[in-house]
């Protein structure tokens, strides 16, 4: 059994970048319920937030959830506690990207797709996933 060690600095950093209060979340799971991509995530949104609440830095940074968030804001619209979940996900991405850990390498994108996809798809993905 591992001891619970709350990484308060990490919590503070998430709260600062996202401008959200983690204690606002009461873990009702509604974000997960409505997330169009929760099925593809190893840890769905509410669990990522739970990791954050407990200051489990490694669990947060290792989870794929934030990379699958498309910032569609359905969770933010329906959250009964007014938590802007996409901002929390952005904070995780920001921490990664500022440490120069991107999700994708532009040079590896399929050339055919590059030619076919609309620029705004690529620009959006680059802004969310590259540094």
């Amino acid at each position: 059994m591992s001891k619970l060690l709350i990484d308060k600095d990490f919590k503070r950093r998430i709260e600062e970048i996202s401008d959200q209060k983690l204690s606002d979340c009461y873990q009702c799971g509604r974000c997960t319920a409505g997330c169009p991509f929760a099925n593809f995530m190893d840890a769905p949104p509410n669990q990522v937030i739970r990791f954050m609440q407990l200051g489990l830095k490694d669990d947060v940074l290792d989870s794929q959830g934030p990379w699958l968030c498309a910032a569609c804001l359905v969770c933010q619209t329906r959250c009964p506690r007014g938590v802007d979940i996409p901002r929390l996900m952005e904070a995780v991405r920001a921490i990664h990207l500022r440490a120069k850990e991107g999700l994708i390498d532009v040079s590896e994108i399929d050339k055919e797709f590059l030619l076919d996809a609309p620029p705004l798809a690529l620009m959006s993905a680059f802004s969310k996933y590259t540094y």
Binding site: Q27, C28, G29, R30, T32, A33, C35, A38, N39, A43, P44, N46, Q47
Partner: peptide, 8 residues
């Protein structure tokens, strides 16, 4: 969602 199993 079932938050206890972490599933949608």
């Amino acid at each position: 969602a079932d938050t206890l199993s972490g599933k949608q």
